[in-house]
Nucleic acid binder design. Structure first.
Lengths: 206, 206
DNA sequence: CCTACCGATCGGTAGG
DNA sequence: CCTACCGATCGGTAGG
């Protein structure tokens, strides 16, 4: 009878759906995230699940948003105390490495953003693809800002193009995700740290 | 009535199916490669198509094999005349860059191997996942062989771990595929060439 | 290569 | 949140 209790329970159910949805999408992609299978996993009906989102697309967007929050908490927040520039860049990369190495609970199938980017990169523009692009652009810009700061402060060689650093950094982490997911290579985190250290070597550290 | 003519026609039909299947899979993944849609595109019946392969899985494996042949012709063969070691490594990277930049006819949705790797990396072992792993391992080993040759010949710094070079090389090309497919970034091929040149810099070229 | 069909599952709706 | 249902599509088969 109490509307507060019912609203709180509905909220908790929604949380459970999104959490499980993120895990399922990390394994099977946002396309493989089907309403029937997710409802079955959670022991609720399809229409009960769909009532929280309206459409599958809204469920996919909710999963993306949640993944973004998890990524932000695991990678950006731990580095937020470091000095802007090279120090923060290195802290972000270290947190990112640990995150791809260990975060199996929320993302049992690997980084959802990599999966979603590859899954939607050849699709026509639409709400989901646009959200994937927006998220990738957000992180790119955050990385770029710290690279620019580092170059301006003389912490990185001034002849390096900031965009070039970001391009290569992203590649290192794509390679890490690939090595861990497809080959289960236990040496991949160490290779990532080596590559990052070499790329982000200061002008006097050569 | 002539069995030769009929066999030749069947072969041509099979070729058309595989070719179109590779293109479809590069856009929608090997999972999104559905028999009904492919048959509709080609103007034949589902059962007519399936008669050439038996199962969807066999169709997926045929598409992977074809993609491998295309990749081999576009990336490995142009470099086959170069000297083993650093020279061939650089030639392979140049052909690979051009391939990801231009190969829109066979792979309108980008490199099928990247798509397939991300799509199947969290799946249980099975014929398709195993084939994806095998193909990736084949190219890894070819790259590794030339890196080892280059290090042994003193063309690359001897303190570098050959596996480290391969790890970083793959990352550069993942980043290229990502930039081209998700952002359509026209500067990505140039960034790739810059990154490769820096990674494969000889000991006396620093 | 075809038509005609199978059971299962898809996203989603009606009505409670 | 439920049951009961919708049309569409999935991979695949029977029989020619």
């Amino acid at each position: 009878m109490s509307p507060r209790k019912s609203a709180a329970e509905a909220h908790r159910t929604r949380e459970r759906i999104v959490e499980r949805g993120v895990a399922m999408a990390s394994v099977d992609g946002l396309g493989g995230l089907t309403i029937g299978r997710l409802a079955g996993d959670l022991g609720i009906s399809k229409s009960g699940l769909l009532g929280h989102f309206g459409t599958k697309e809204a469920l996919q967007l909710a999963a993306l948003r949640r993944a973004s929050e998890v990524f932000s908490r695991a990678v950006w927040e731990p580095a937020s105390g470091a000095e802007p520039g090279l120090a923060r860049l290195r802290a972000v990369c270290e947190a990112w490495t640990t995150y791809l190495e260990r975060e199996r609970a929320t993302f049992p199938g690997g980084c959802l953003f990599t999966t979603a980017a590859v899954e939607f990169d050849a699709q026509l523009p639409g709400p989901v693809r646009d959200a994937v692009v927006r998220l990738h652009q957000t992180w790119r810009h955050r990385l770029l800002a710290d690279v620019r700061h580092a170059v301006a402060a003389g912490e990185l060689p001034g002849d390096g193009d900031p965009e070039q650093y970001v391009f290569e950094l992203l590649g290192i982490f794509f390679s890490l995700n690939h090595s861990v997911q497809l080959f289960g290579d236990p040496a991949a985190p160490a290779r990532t740290r080596t590559a990052v250290a070499r790329l982000l070597r200061g002008p006097g550290e050569g």
